[in-house]
Computed example of a mutant assay.
Amino acid sequence: MLILTAHDIQQFYTMQDAIAADKQALKIYTQGNSEVPLRINFDMQKGQCLFMPAHIKENDVVGLKIVSVFPDNPKLGKPSVPAQVFMIDPQTGEVCAILDGTFVTQLRTGAVQGAATDLLAKKDAKRAVLIGTGGQAAAQLEAMLTVRQLTDVAIYGLDASKGKAFVEEMKKRFAHFSANLYFSHNLDEDIHQADIITSVTTSKVVTFNGDLVKPGTHVNGVGAYTPEMHEIPSNIVENADIRVLDTKDGVFAEAGDIIDPINQQLVTQQDFYELGDLVSDPQKCRQNDQQITLFKTVGTAVLDVYVGYDIYQKAKQKGFGTNI
């Protein structure tokens, strides 16, 4: 059995690798070639455990992500949301690998936004806005920088001191992209100038003014994943020329910023594509530079399992990880 830490994975697996894997995973999902049961949640005395299995029929791969939410863990010097991804050998049924699930989640979540941005944003997009500076933010920034040659990225968070510290850290980490990263002191102005907007928060209210979004902008909603959360303005959902989801089943059940506009009859469920539709048929992607496009993701275990197996296969080829 191969153990793969975040450090192991970072040495050989790139954001570009993850974006390609996410595209393929969602194509497989949309074509009906995977099984993704509803996740199982167990409420415990000090937290919650979630079990997320998936079966990729195409290569007969089964995997499971276990993610826990234990708010008091930081007092013990441990992460509040620990996670692991378990891969099953399709030949023997044995557990063949355990991966750092926290890192895999950040990677595949950044990558799915990167996949959507690659398929939907203008090819010459130069300016972007990232709203949110939490645990998912770095991967979201890396994904945008990977798929477009951005010149400027405005980064905004409610806690200005934390946001500025995040910007300084990202300048060092992503210096090789040569983009100007800065903390936004005027979010409205930056939104109005943006070609790409990515919001990755758990906000229950919208995180930007949809009236300021210019024609041709691509918008990503990444953070809100419950019916109570609502980071994307309803007028963006209503007025977008192309609306895309990672999975319809997941978003229609969980994402308040899509559920509410549907309930308000601003849009219908038939007005949305899945990202897998765009991978299969590029004609469903952006057709001109004036269209406003929208992508919403809540995540799915098919991403964890497909990306996890891709990481495992490449790790074996390149000799990374620890065998036990």
Rank of each mutant, 00 (worst) to 15 (best):
A97T: 12
L212T: 03
K122A: 10
Q283L: 11
P79Y: 00
V222T: 12
D43H: 13
E142V: 00
Q24W: 12
P53S: 09
V298S: 02
V95P: 02
D289M: 11
G110H: 07
H230K: 15
I258A: 01
S184Q: 02
F103V: 07
D89E: 09
A224I: 08
L119F: 01
L150P: 02
F272E: 07
T226C: 04
P90I: 06
G77S: 06
I66S: 04
I324R: 10
L26F: 14
F42E: 12
P227D: 03
T109Y: 02
G163S: 01
H176W: 10
E274Q: 14
I88K: 01
T133A: 03
K78F: 09
D289H: 13
K171W: 11
N73A: 03
D310W: 04
R243T: 01
M87P: 00
E94I: 10
A240W: 07
Q291T: 07
P227A: 05
P90W: 07
M229Q: 13
Q31S: 15
G63R: 03
N180D: 13
T151W: 00
K214D: 05
D22F: 00
A175T: 12
G221L: 07
R108W: 08
L145Y: 09
Q24L: 15
Y273K: 05
F86Y: 15
T30I: 06
D195R: 01
I155L: 05
R148L: 08
K27Q: 15
V219F: 03
N235M: 06
G132N: 03
M44H: 08
L181R: 03
G163V: 03
P282S: 11
H55E: 10
V167Y: 09
